[in-house]
Protein backbone atom coordinates (compact mmCIF):
# COMPACT_ATOMS: atom_id res chain seq x y z
CA UNK A 1 0.00 0.00 0.00
CA UNK A 2 1.58 3.23 -1.08
CA UNK A 3 -1.04 5.75 -0.09
CA UNK A 4 -2.09 5.48 3.54
CA UNK A 5 -5.17 7.28 4.73
CA UNK A 6 -5.52 9.89 7.47
CA UNK A 7 -8.68 10.84 9.27
CA UNK A 8 -9.31 14.42 10.37
CA UNK A 9 -10.47 14.98 13.93
CA UNK A 10 -10.75 17.62 16.62
CA UNK A 11 -10.71 17.98 20.35
CA UNK A 12 -13.35 20.54 21.30
CA UNK A 13 -13.98 20.20 24.97
CA UNK A 14 -15.07 23.27 26.92
CA UNK A 15 -14.27 23.66 30.58
CA UNK A 16 -15.58 25.83 33.43
CA UNK A 17 -12.76 26.35 35.90
CA UNK A 18 -13.87 27.31 39.42
CA UNK A 19 -11.76 30.25 40.54
CA UNK A 20 -12.21 29.59 44.26
CA UNK A 21 -12.11 32.12 47.09
CA UNK A 22 -8.40 32.96 46.76
CA UNK A 23 -8.49 33.74 43.06
CA UNK A 24 -11.80 35.55 43.41
CA UNK A 25 -10.36 37.85 46.07
CA UNK A 26 -7.27 38.53 43.95
CA UNK A 27 -9.24 39.31 40.80
CA UNK A 28 -11.73 41.49 42.69
CA UNK A 29 -8.87 43.62 44.02
CA UNK A 30 -7.45 43.89 40.50
CA UNK A 31 -10.76 44.93 39.02
CA UNK A 32 -12.26 47.01 41.78
CA UNK A 33 -9.27 48.66 43.41
CA UNK A 34 -6.49 48.38 40.82
CA UNK A 35 -4.38 46.68 43.47
CA UNK A 36 -2.26 43.55 43.46
CA UNK A 37 -2.74 41.63 46.67
CA UNK A 38 -1.00 38.42 47.63
CA UNK A 39 -1.47 35.76 50.30
CA UNK A 40 1.26 35.48 52.93
CA UNK A 41 2.20 32.18 54.57
CA UNK A 42 1.67 32.36 58.35
CA UNK A 43 4.61 30.01 58.86
CA UNK A 44 7.44 30.95 56.48
CA UNK A 45 6.23 34.41 55.47
CA UNK A 46 6.29 33.67 51.73
CA UNK A 47 4.22 36.26 49.85
CA UNK A 48 3.09 34.34 46.78
CA UNK A 49 2.05 35.41 43.32
CA UNK A 50 0.12 33.96 41.59
CA UNK A 51 -1.98 33.68 44.75
CA UNK A 52 -2.59 30.32 46.35
CA UNK A 53 -4.85 29.25 49.21
CA UNK A 54 -2.10 27.29 50.94
CA UNK A 55 1.69 27.28 51.21
CA UNK A 56 3.19 24.53 49.08
CA UNK A 57 6.28 24.42 51.27
CA UNK A 58 4.72 24.49 54.76
CA UNK A 59 1.41 22.83 53.76
CA UNK A 60 -0.73 25.17 55.83
CA UNK A 61 -3.78 27.16 54.73
CA UNK A 62 -3.40 30.90 54.34
CA UNK A 63 -5.79 33.69 55.21
CA UNK A 64 -3.48 36.69 55.55
CA UNK A 65 -3.18 39.03 52.55
CA UNK A 66 -0.73 41.85 51.83
CA UNK A 67 -0.61 44.46 49.12
CA UNK A 68 2.53 44.36 46.97
CA UNK A 69 4.34 47.23 45.25
CA UNK A 70 3.53 48.60 41.81
CA UNK A 71 7.12 48.19 40.64
CA UNK A 72 9.40 45.21 40.41
CA UNK A 73 12.43 43.54 38.87
CA UNK A 74 12.62 41.26 35.83
CA UNK A 75 13.75 37.74 36.79
CA UNK A 76 13.33 36.04 33.40
CA UNK A 77 11.91 37.03 30.03
CA UNK A 78 11.50 35.99 26.43
CA UNK A 79 10.34 37.46 23.15
CA UNK A 80 8.25 35.29 20.83
CA UNK A 81 8.57 36.18 17.13
CA UNK A 82 6.63 33.23 15.64
CA UNK A 83 2.96 32.20 15.56
CA UNK A 84 1.74 29.17 17.48
CA UNK A 85 -1.81 27.96 16.97
CA UNK A 86 -4.31 29.56 19.39
CA UNK A 87 -1.55 31.50 21.16
CA UNK A 88 -1.13 35.30 21.06
CA UNK A 89 -0.13 36.94 17.79
CA UNK A 90 3.62 37.60 17.59
CA UNK A 91 5.75 39.37 18.39
CA UNK A 92 5.21 39.63 22.13
CA UNK A 93 7.44 39.92 25.18
CA UNK A 94 6.67 38.20 28.47
CA UNK A 95 8.56 38.45 31.72
CA UNK A 96 8.56 37.02 35.22
CA UNK A 97 8.68 40.01 37.54
CA UNK A 98 9.37 40.02 41.27
CA UNK A 99 7.12 42.82 42.49
CA UNK A 100 8.45 44.76 45.47
CA UNK A 101 7.26 43.04 48.62
CA UNK A 102 6.47 39.72 46.91
CA UNK A 103 8.45 36.54 47.50
CA UNK A 104 7.84 35.00 44.07
CA UNK A 105 7.79 36.31 40.51
CA UNK A 106 4.66 36.50 38.34
CA UNK A 107 4.45 36.42 34.55
CA UNK A 108 2.76 39.02 32.31
CA UNK A 109 3.31 40.87 29.04
CA UNK A 110 5.84 43.69 28.85
CA UNK A 111 4.22 46.11 26.45
CA UNK A 112 6.42 49.16 25.93
CA UNK A 113 9.37 47.52 24.18
CA UNK A 114 10.19 47.83 20.49
CA UNK A 115 10.28 44.21 19.34
CA UNK A 116 11.30 44.78 15.72
CA UNK A 117 14.90 43.75 16.49
CA UNK A 118 15.02 40.67 18.73
CA UNK A 119 18.56 41.10 20.03
CA UNK A 120 18.03 44.75 20.88
CA UNK A 121 14.73 43.94 22.58
CA UNK A 122 16.39 41.20 24.59
CA UNK A 123 19.06 43.63 25.82
CA UNK A 124 16.43 46.07 27.00
CA UNK A 125 14.52 43.35 28.83
CA UNK A 126 17.57 42.08 30.72
CA UNK A 127 17.26 40.38 34.11
CA UNK A 128 17.43 42.98 36.84
CA UNK A 129 15.68 45.72 34.82
CA UNK A 130 12.94 47.57 36.69
CA UNK A 131 9.34 47.54 35.48
CA UNK A 132 6.08 49.02 36.70
CA UNK A 133 2.55 47.65 36.76
CA UNK A 134 0.13 49.37 34.39
CA UNK A 135 -3.59 48.76 34.86
CA UNK A 136 -6.06 48.74 32.01
CA UNK A 137 -8.79 51.36 32.19
CA UNK A 138 -11.59 48.85 31.64
CA UNK A 139 -10.88 45.91 33.91
CA UNK A 140 -12.75 42.61 33.76
CA UNK A 141 -11.35 40.74 36.73
CA UNK A 142 -8.84 38.66 34.75
CA UNK A 143 -5.07 38.50 34.67
CA UNK A 144 -5.18 40.78 31.61
CA UNK A 145 -6.33 43.68 33.83
CA UNK A 146 -2.68 44.71 34.05
CA UNK A 147 0.62 44.35 32.27
CA UNK A 148 4.20 45.42 32.83
CA UNK A 149 6.14 48.31 31.29
CA UNK A 150 9.85 49.00 31.49
CA UNK A 151 10.59 52.00 33.71
CA UNK A 152 13.24 53.15 31.21
CA UNK A 153 12.37 51.90 27.75
Amino acid sequence: MKEMMTLKGGWNVKYNYAVGPTGTRFFKALKGEAKIIAPKCPKCGLVMLPPRSFCERCFVPIDEWVEVGMEGTIQAFTVVPVKFESLPDPPYAIAYVLLDGAGTAMVNFVKNVDLSDLRKAAKKLAIGKRVRVVFEKKRKGTIHDFHYELLKP
Binding site: V47, Y96, L98, T104, A105
Partner: peptide
Protein backbone atom coordinates in the same frame (compact mmCIF):
# COMPACT_ATOMS: atom_id res chain seq x y z
CA UNK B 1 6.17 23.46 42.27
CA UNK B 2 4.67 24.22 38.86
CA UNK B 3 5.32 27.93 39.31
CA UNK B 4 8.54 29.06 37.64
CA UNK B 5 8.28 32.41 39.40
CA UNK B 6 8.86 30.67 42.76
CA UNK B 7 12.33 29.70 41.56
CA UNK B 8 13.85 33.05 40.73
CA UNK B 9 14.85 35.81 43.14
CA UNK B 10 12.79 36.68 46.21
CA UNK B 11 12.37 33.76 48.56
CA UNK B 12 13.31 31.12 45.99
Amino acid sequence: TVFLGDQMGGMA
